[in-house]
């Protein structure tokens, strides 16, 4: 039933969620990149017909539950990011990895800002600049994530699904 691409996508999201909640030593916790967003951005670029706004929103809702955040907080941010990737995927695909990483930086920043904005309204915004570290680490890791995900997809999923 499930196409092999879909299986790989679900598995990669599972791993991304694992990395998101995995306990880390205290000093790296603030540098933990937003794995789920990065992986989902990849799938929105690779399989835009399957990974749309709806999937982005639903995965964001899962992120809310796992973070114990207000329902809709991460969902809104992730959905907007996926929307931008979705409508720009053809341009993003032909960009070089460095250019992609720069775009990813701003996309992650957008999500962080939306999440921060909601936290601020609710009244528990973090008051440290370290809050924006995941944006930087995420953008720096992007080339590797892209290459790894692409190789995995080429190996296990079948190509030319779009």
């Amino acid at each position: 039933m499930l196409s092999s691409n879909l299986k790989v996508a679900i598995l990669s999201l599972f791993v991304a969620f694992m990395l998101t909640i995995m306990p880390l030593p205290g000093w790296v916790v603030e540098f933990r990149p937003d794995w789920v967003t990065l992986v989902l951005i990849y799938w929105a670029m690779a399989l835009p017909a399957r990974t749309g706004v709806t999937i982005g929103w639903l995965v964001g809702l899962m992120l809310d539950v796992s973070h114990g955040a207000i329902l809709g907080q991460h969902a809104l941010g992730l959905m907007l990011v996926i929307y931008i990737v979705h409508i720009q995927h053809q341009r993003l695909r032909v960009a070089s990895l460095v250019q992609q990483a720069i775009v990813i930086f701003f996309l992650l920043l957008l999500k962080q800002l939306i999440v921060l904005w909601v936290s601020g309204i609710v009244g528990h915004a973090p008051d440290t600049w370290l809050y924006f570290m995941p944006t930087i680490t995420g953008a720096m890791l992007w080339p590797w994530i892209y290459i790894i995900m692409r190789d995995i997809r080429r190996k296990f999923g079948y190509r030319a699904n779009y």
């Binding site: 835009p48 017909a49 749309g52 706004v53 709806t54 929103w57 207000i70 329902l71 809709g72 907080q73 969902a75 809104l76 959905m79 907007l80 929307y83 979705h86 409508i87 909601v118 609710v122």
Partner: peptide
């Protein structure tokens, strides 16, 4: 070319749903 307007429309709908959801939850 993917169905552009439909994605935008869905985006707007989800923004509204998110805002409503956050309000209700909070």
């Amino acid at each position: 070319f993917l169905r552009g307007p439909s994605a935008t429309l869905r985006m707007i709908i989800f923004v509204i749903i998110s805002l409503a959801l956050m309000t209700v939850d909070h």
